[in-house]
């Protein structure tokens, strides 16, 4: 039996916003019945330009239903631009986490949201000519690349958990491995990357903290605050549970620093200061 959080169970047993909107501004359908889960998602903007209504219909397991329900609750009240920044991790965090094997449900939600926004903006969704890597589940190279980058995936198994790619016949495992290797090499071989201006660097650090790091720490009752950036030294102060946590130094090095190095600049060093 899956270890679902109470919030997942709640959103599964009492799903919010099930249904369709007749005159929706953005509509998307992702997944297929052959793959085992499918999601139809739509939203309508209010006069203030914010999402006033969001609805869904889904075919899938409990976590797929819960993820879709969570997504509709999350985006209500957001502008389209704010909604476009919602990641699959945000959906999982909203639900208090998902089992690793079920992360693909949150990815499905993010994909649906993105496609619905594209639909609203009048641009085409998934381009037809995109290269399919996993034939069994129709997963494209771009989708796999994105999941690897956004969730720092390092193994074929993880890619399968997040995208389903490789979960069928297994013929694409080598290709997935190559994509992982390629992205890991990109992250390593950064000298070719243009140098960041200080202002840009600080901005990116702030954004990464906000989007990727603080939600995860908050999930465990902790928090972090950016104090200063001096060259490649990122000075931070810990808050909440992190401040009194024995393992906070480990968290700094293994999680905060890894994340900032990956998403901002590979030579960053995180230092904890009291502020």
């Amino acid at each position: 039996m899956w270890d679902y959080t109470d919030k997942v169970k709640d959103h599964f047993l009492n799903p919010r916003n099930v249904g369709e909107i007749e005159d929706a501004d953005g509509v998307a359908e992702v997944g297929s019945i052959a793959c085992g889960d499918a999601l139809k998602f739509m939203f309508k903007l209010g006069p203030d330009g914010k999402i006033a209504e969001a609805k869904f219909k889904t075919f899938g397991c409990a976590s797929a239903i819960a993820s879709a329900s969570a997504l509709t609750e999350m985006v209500k009240g957001m502008t389209v631009e704010e909604a476009s920044k919602v990641t699959n991790q945000d959906i999982a965090n909203f639900l208090g986490g998902l089992p690793q094997e079920k992360m693909h449900c949150s990815v499905l939600g993010r994909e649906a949201l993105e496609m619905a926004i594209s639909n609203y903006q009048g641009s085409p969704g998934k381009a037809e000519e995109e290269k399919i890597v996993c034939e069994c589940f129709g997963v494209t190279e771009k989708e796999i690349e994105r999941a690897i980058r956004e969730n720092r995936l390092t193994s074929v198994e993880e890619v399968t958990n997040y995208t389903k790619a490789g979960g069928g016949c297994g013929n694409c495992h080598d290709t997935i491995r190559e994509i992982i290797d390629r992205i890991q090499a990109e992250v390593r071989d950064l000298p070719g990357r243009p140098k960041l201006s200080n202002i840009k660097k600080i901005k990116m650090i702030e954004e990464t903290l906000e989007r990727e790091i603080r939600p995860a720490l908050k999930h465990d009752g902790g928090d972090i605050e950016l104090v200063d950036v001096v060259g490649n030294r990122v000075l931070v102060a810990t808050r909440g549970a992190c401040a009194s946590c024995q393992a906070s130094n480990q968290t700094m090095k293994n999680f905060v620093e890894v994340k900032l190095r990956e998403l901002v600049w590979p030579e960053l060093v995180v230092e904890e200061v009291s502020a």
Partner: peptide, 9 residues
Amino acid sequence: FVEGEGILL
């Protein structure tokens, strides 16, 4: 048109 896990839960 429905998924088994949902039925089981």
